[in-house]
């Protein structure tokens, strides 16, 4: 790791001020995205601003048809939260399949979204549920947030403070793990909103990051069942291809994981 200066602000405003004051800063919460790339010297922020212990960034609230998970809440706290399990169990399920126990003890929902890693799990839930990303400056709709692989609508220094999920009628997540990294080789989050809208979002599969899958959404809107997807064909165009899976294989996984997500949906 290159030399860096570590800061631990105690409030959101202090964090933002530190970011503005110092050159080439990066926010750090659990550190499980940033530190590995710093270790491999692929990222070299001069300043890291640790937001992981700011009280206003930690916690889960469910009220008024919305589940709010604050940005620096760890995966472990999310998956074991009664509020999460009661309001959107698919989020608890997704979180329990994310990383490994030690990673879940440190990693945070904010970190999972801010980087828009093409194999991260949470972007699929955020987009499928039509969540709102709250920052220290504004609210951003999920549809406007993910801008392609490793790119988001976040401006320089803008800090995610919470993610607000509208409660769904039904939601499910299923993923096929990458044999080596154990990230999602392909994961699919399906959700039926209380208004009857259906979304199916795949992660890990597409060259452009998290993506909605129109064919699946259409079929599920007509008939919310795994069997409804039997005849759906997913095109391999634009899907990732590597030693662990061809684009054709990933296209198959998009469908199969969608079916299993529907089966698991509650």
């Amino acid at each position: 790791m290159y030399e860096t200066i570590y800061h631990r602000p105690s409030s959101i405003d202090e964090a933002a001020a530190l970011f503005a004051k110092n050159e080439d800063g990066k926010y750090l919460a659990g550190g499980h995205t940033l530190i590995p790339v710093m270790k491999s010297r692929l990222a070299a922020p001069s300043n890291v601003i640790d937001i992981g212990r700011i009280p206003a960034l930690i916690g889960i609230e469910a009220a008024g048809g919305t589940l709010m998970i604050k940005a620096a809440t760890t995966y472990y706290d999310i998956m074991s939260s009664t509020q999460v399990k009661q309001s959107i169990p698919a989020i608890a399920r997704l979180t329990s399949m994310l990383g490994d126990p030690q990673v879940r003890a440190r990693g945070t929902i904010g970190g999972s979204i801010a980087n828009n890693d093409p194999a991260a799990d949470f972007p699929a839930a955020v987009l499928a549920l039509g969540a709102t990303i709250r920052t220290n400056k504004r609210d951003i709709a999920a549809d406007d947030f993910f801008k392609g692989i490793f790119t988001t609508a976040l401006q320089d220094g803008e800090l995610i403070t919470a993610v607000l999920f509208p409660l769904a009628a039904k939601a499910g997540y299923s993923k096929f793990r990458h044999p080596a990294s154990r990230f999602a080789l392909t994961g699919v989050f399906v959700a039926q909103s209380k208004g009857g809208d259906v979304r199916a979002v795949a992660t890990g599969a597409s060259q452009s990051g998290v993506m909605r899958v129109g064919e699946i959404e259409k079929a599920l809107k007509a008939n919310w069942s795994a069997a409804a997807l039997d005849s759906v064909k997913i095109s391999p165009d634009g899907l990732l291809e590597d030693i662990h899976g061809t684009a054709e294989y990933r296209a198959n996984l998009v469908k199969v994981m969608a079916q299993r997500a529907v089966e698991s949906a509650e």
């Binding site: 570590y6 631990r8 550190g31 990294s181 154990r182």
Partner: peptide
């Protein structure tokens, strides 16, 4: 080097974490 093998696992405040992915400041 990639926070995967777990040989560095310790407990911080009672939770098992990978000490290779924690800065001393944290």
């Amino acid at each position: 080097d990639t926070s995967q093998c777990g040989a560095c696992t310790v407990h911080i405040d009672g939770r098992a974490v990978k000490s290779c992915t924690v800065l001393v400041g944290q």
